[in-house]
Amino acid sequence: MHTNVKQFIKFCLFILIQTQVLDKIMIRWWTEPSGFPIFVPFLYPLFILLLPLSTPVWLLLFVGFTTGLSVDLFNNTAGMHAFACVLMAYLRTNVLNALLPKNLSEYGQQVPGVKVMGWMPFLTYSAFLLLILHLTFFTLEIWSFSNIGYLLLKVLASTITSMLLVVGYLLLFTNSSSIRNK
């Protein structure tokens, strides 16, 4: 199947899983104290993280914008997810350049993953970008620093939960995808 079609199907799946399944799962680490934030886990940024390594920046930006806006539509948060996603997509190339030994264009259609990058660099890459995304999104959503502890707690808890999902995704799909690429 053509790569673009494949990516489009993947995009639809990520958006549907995020908006139809994960948005229904409200997580709270502790019920007491009662001020502890409730949040939903985000998996959709993984789509941007897993785009091919040689994707040009302008395409990344547009894909990020579309992904964010699609999630926004379902959550009535017009623009907030999109803002965070565009920022993440813009920073992606810089982070990858810093972590990878070769020039990005030399990798071709390979996707960032454990096979190409190794566990530690990939986890650093995804953790850093996810942290940026969550920080931007929750700052925009809460829109005040009057309760900064709550904001930071929500960002931290949400990022760690999303990272667990990313690791879960990697463990599930790493082997099969690398075989398919060969």
């Binding site: 930006l61 914008f65 009535n76 017009a78 623009g79 907030m80 999109a82 803002f83 565009v86 925009l140």
Partner: peptide, 23 residues
């Protein structure tokens, strides 16, 4: 793109938001 996003957020944050970008 970020400016577009900010405009969208600003318009929804007022009580009269836009209808097309809601659920």
């Amino acid at each position: 793109l970020e400016i577009v996003c900010i405009l969208l957020i600003a318009r929804t944050n007022t009580l009269q938001g836009i209808d097309i970008l809601s659920s």
